[in-house]
Nucleic acid binder design. Structure first.
Ligand code: MN
Ligand code: MN
Ligand code: ZN
Ligand code: ZN
Lengths: 137, 137
DNA sequence: AAAACCAATGCAATGGAAGTGCATTTATTA
DNA sequence: TAATAAATGCACTTCCATTGCATTGGTTTT
């Protein structure tokens, strides 16, 4: 069980107060968040800092970006051992048309998609839209 | 074999010079296009007109919108008989990481995607990224 | 410990794309 | 032809993403 500090250091990211706070914020969220969400949670911090922190996390595979079709990019923590770059690791995402939230379905891996001859698949983005469990009761 | 005029009229869209031109432009393109692409092709026309024309086409199911993850929405003509609203009709899209173009794989339908209990799937967006046939030779 | 260094943060500005209000032109209908 | 409605054009706005540059703060070197 790694501490957050150890995790950051293992990826050559300097530990700062801001980074720890943002990491914890993402960790306690069970849904993907936008930059605005983070902004609202840390009103004293500058947008740019938050932006760059998330980008750093993204580069170092601490978070992954989610394009759920709303036009606003969202972010969520990577699972332990998740290597976002590897295709086989890709899970699907669910976007609720009711509460407008997006979540990772981390144990729903994307099935193998056939593409025509001559095409090479490197990566797949799969977003299911509908009604989430909280909204469908 | 319908003419473009007949197609537009059958969907209660008035035939105008601009609309015919944009339709033909989309028809001769084999890839999905952005609004900027259309702008560049019709520099004498106003952005707004092009924008609203595409939106009209979209509402009337003449084109469908494609979110390929680049952050810029693209559009492509619907196939004959294609009903974009119906889930079973949804085909997948391929985005080439090399030439940056996106194409409809109209005869590659999206497989049934399982979602966890309590979730209701209404719609699926599936984009495969990689190298297209033209770039992979 | 002080100086030098580099990364992190903050501030301001930019750019791109999407969208809207309103005036004007053009086509349709009465 | 006059009245009406839709299409187009222009200007402006909003929202999100991104960058340049100055400043702060922590680390390393002397
Ligand atoms: Mn995810
Ligand atoms: Mn398509
Ligand atoms: Zn919901
Ligand atoms: Zn290509």
């Amino acid at each position: 069980m790694k501490t957050i500090e150890q995790l950051l250091e293992s990826k050559n990211i300097r530990v700062t107060a801001m980074r720890l706070l943002i990491y914890k914020f993402l960790a306690k969220k069970e849904v993907a968040v936008t930059l605005s969400d983070i902004e609202n949670a840390f009103e004293k911090a500058d947008r740019t800092t938050l932006y760059r922190t998330v980008k750093t996390f993204e580069e170092k595979a601490i978070v992954h970006q989610i394009d759920d079709g709303t036009g606003i990019t969202k972010y969520a923590l990577c699972e332990k051992g998740c290597n976002c770059e590897i295709e086989t690791d890709l899970h699907l995402h669910f976007h609720c048309n009711n509460c407008n939230e997006t979540i990772c379905l981390t144990d729903h891996k994307i099935p193998q998609i056939k593409v025509p001859d001559g095409f090479v698949s490197e990566n797949v983005n799969l977003v299911v839209k509908g009604i989430c469990d909280k909204c469908s009761v």
